[in-house]
């Protein structure tokens, strides 16, 4: 009987958590926009969240593209279909790997940093300070970080895709000898702007909202102690990764199924 108790209580806690998170997000985003105050904050956060993630995204994109080129060639050459390497690399990246891997890397690098930063602000009473100074910490601290995450992650995914395709090209054409013209022309006839690229962007945006939201919520509600913050950081990475993978399946089924 107590197992059902625990299960029920866990489910209720999780639902309550989702509710809390929704309220937090609504309070952070709804309201009169104040561009003069918010823009400098947004730019700073774009730097912290976007620019500083660029290196890991670009390097990962390059390597994944190269692996796709290599592995793809190895598989396709058995069917005599190595001309299809171009579309294989491009479609894998644009539809799936670009949005998903970018989201996972982003959750690990920027998401955990956001959680730790906000958790630390709560632990050092900076958030309470803001409240007592009659400044809404949700609008001032949470909102710029949210928009920065939602804006930068899809951009990072685009960069990931571009670099990955280039990596696949380098391995496939320059190293393994697939025909240059064939690589690009077969790719171009298989990749559709709306179906593939736009859908990939839509996925990135959805993932960006989820990852940033989880990271901010976990930081905002972290227990303000060292073990509390480290637990919150771990939870951010775990929860947002699982959410991204689950949503990826749902979105893929809707878009391509």
């Amino acid at each position: 009987m107590s197992m059902f108790h625990t299960l029920g209580r866990n489910i209720l806690n999780n639902i309550q958590g989702v509710g809390q998170a929704s309220i937090m997000l609504a309070q952070a985003l709804v309201g009169k926009p104040q561009p003069r105050k918010m823009l400098p904050l947004l730019i700073r956060q774009l730097y912290v969240v976007g620019v500083q993630s660029m290196l890991i995204i670009l390097i990962s994109g390059l390597f994944i593209g190269m692996v796709l080129g290599l592995q793809g060639f190895t598989i396709l050459v058995d069917f005599g279909a190595e001309q299809a390497l171009g579309p294989m690399v491009a479609l894998s990246l644009l539809r799936e790997l670009g949005p998903v891997v970018t989201a996972l890397l982003f959750a690990g690098r920027a998401g955990s940093a956001l959680t730790a930063e906000i958790g630390l602000m709560r632990a050092t009473e900076q958030l309470s300070s803001l409240e007592m100074m009659a400044v809404d910490p949700l609008r001032r601290v949470v909102a710029p970080r949210f928009w920065a995450g939602v804006i930068s992650m899809p951009l990072l995914a685009l960069m990931f895709n571009a670099v990955g395709i280039y990596g696949g090209f380098t391995v496939g054409v320059q190293w393994l000898g697939v025909d240059d013209g064939a690589f690009w022309s077969v790719m171009q006839s298989s990749v559709h702007w709306q179906d593939d690229i736009m859908n990939g962007v839509i996925k990135s945006v959805v993932f960006a909202v989820v990852v940033t939201w989880v990271a901010l919520f976990k930081g905002y509600t972290a227990t303000p102690t060292s073990p509390g913050i480290s637990a919150a950081t771990t939870q951010t990475v775990v929860y947002s990764s699982l959410a991204v993978l689950g949503l990826d399946f749902v979105l893929t089924a809707i878009m391509f199924g």
């Binding site: 900076q126 300070s129 007592m132 100074m133």
Partner: peptide, 18 residues
């Protein structure tokens, strides 16, 4: 928020914005 402008609180750690 208006009323809070009339009072100030000094936190234990100072709580300066880092």
């Amino acid at each position: 928020y208006e009323t809070r402008k009339r009072m100030s609180m000094l936190f234990q750690s100072g709580a300066l914005f880092s």
